Simulated scan of single mutants.
Amino acid sequence: MGVIEVDRARARGPRVIPDRPWADIMLDEAVLAVQRRNVEAAIPLLAATRGDPEVRALRIEALSRAAVGMSRGIESLIARDQANPDLWLWLGRTRIEEAFEIKPEVKARAVQARRLEAYHSAMESARQPLVTAAGLMPADPVPWESMLWLAVGLERPRSDKDSVWYECARRWPTLYPANVARLITLSPGWGGTATEMLEFARTVVAKAPEGSPLPALIPLAHFENVAAERTPMSRGGWFGFDAQREIVAAAGQWSQRRIGPAHPRSIEAHNAFGAAFFLSDLRRPARGHLTRTGGRFSRLPWSHLGGEPENQFQRACNKLNVITN
């Protein structure tokens, strides 16, 4: 799939592929199969990831979101294969995604006590499957990455989040989604501070291995920082000059390191940089990164802009005359 810039792009708009920020055809097919309630289609896809935590984490996340409402089906698979770590991991992460679907809005919590109780119960139900998965594959960091989101979802004390991060990082310190989860636990919106969050992002990026999209933590950190203070009525630009300069430097660092096959999270990183450059009115680099998404947008950072991420992504593509074909 290529992407071109044309004068009539505003009329046609981008060909958007909703919530599939990856270049993995087999995962596309498995997600469709699971959405059609064929949960068995995921089994070989997950088994093939046991030696690659980055691909494993991506596929678990994608297939869990596809399986929302179908955790009972995964339980049935486990009943036939109770020693399968892939299934326990999938069940735990699916329960997390199911819980997030029923999480009450903050403003409504006072009048939705029952729903909040149901949310906490649903989220807590993910713990045992994830612990089981971790026990079956002790070297696997992905159950711990999921437990980071569990700690975020339950708003656990900082010490709990730190201990889960330690277990994940000592197994695979450069796991992209785990570093994103850690960034969020340190963000002002989740009880951390801008200083600590940005220091973490900069330290990780400075040590990022060749080809890793971890430099995208820089724009994501700046999004988290601004979003914590921004309101729907806020006016003016998102990023000041210093933030823009740091984002430009991080983008350059990543592009210089991108040698060999693309990282499984490259499209997510292109979304992060593309959104940041778009909001900074840096049209050429914004267009370059959004072109490389192939019309596949990620929830972060577009959800920070308000409304549906798809609408924000499409708006940016329209303004930059970027379409897919």
Score class of each variant (00 low, 15 high):
M1G: 12
E5P: 00
E5G: 01
R8P: 01
A9K: 03
R10F: 12
R15P: 00
V16E: 15
I17P: 00
I17E: 14
I17R: 13
R20A: 14
P21Y: 14
I25C: 06
M26F: 09
Q35N: 13
R36W: 02
N38P: 00
A41S: 15
A42S: 06
P44I: 10
P53F: 13
E61M: 05
E61L: 08
A66C: 09
A67I: 02
M70K: 13
R72W: 09
G73H: 07
S76F: 04
R80Y: 08
D81I: 02
A83Q: 12
N84D: 14
L89Q: 14
W90F: 11
L91M: 04
L91F: 07
G92Q: 11
G92D: 08
T94Y: 05
R109F: 05
R114K: 13
L116Q: 13
S125T: 01
Q128N: 11
L130P: 00
A133C: 03
G135R: 10
L136G: 02
M137S: 15
P138R: 05
D140R: 01
D140E: 07
E145C: 09
W149I: 00
L150G: 00
A151S: 13
L154H: 00
P157W: 09
R158H: 10
K161V: 04
V164E: 05
W165N: 03
W165G: 01
R171I: 00
W172E: 14
W172C: 14
Y176G: 01
P177H: 06
P177C: 06
P177I: 04
A178T: 02
A178H: 04
T185N: 01
T193S: 15
A194G: 12
A194D: 12
T195L: 12
T195N: 09
E196Q: 11
E196G: 00
A201R: 05
V205M: 07
P209H: 13
G211Y: 07
P215H: 06
P215Q: 08
A216F: 03
I218W: 05
P219L: 05
P219N: 06
P219Q: 07
V226L: 03
A227H: 12
A228L: 02
T231L: 10
M233I: 02
R235W: 11
F241Y: 07
F241N: 04
E246P: 00
I247Q: 12
G252M: 03
S255V: 01
S266T: 14
E268W: 08
A269N: 04
A269S: 08
A269L: 03
F277T: 02
S280Y: 08
L282W: 06
R287M: 13
G288T: 09
S298W: 07
L305D: 08
G306P: 00
Q312S: 13
L320D: 00
V322K: 08
I323T: 10
T324C: 09
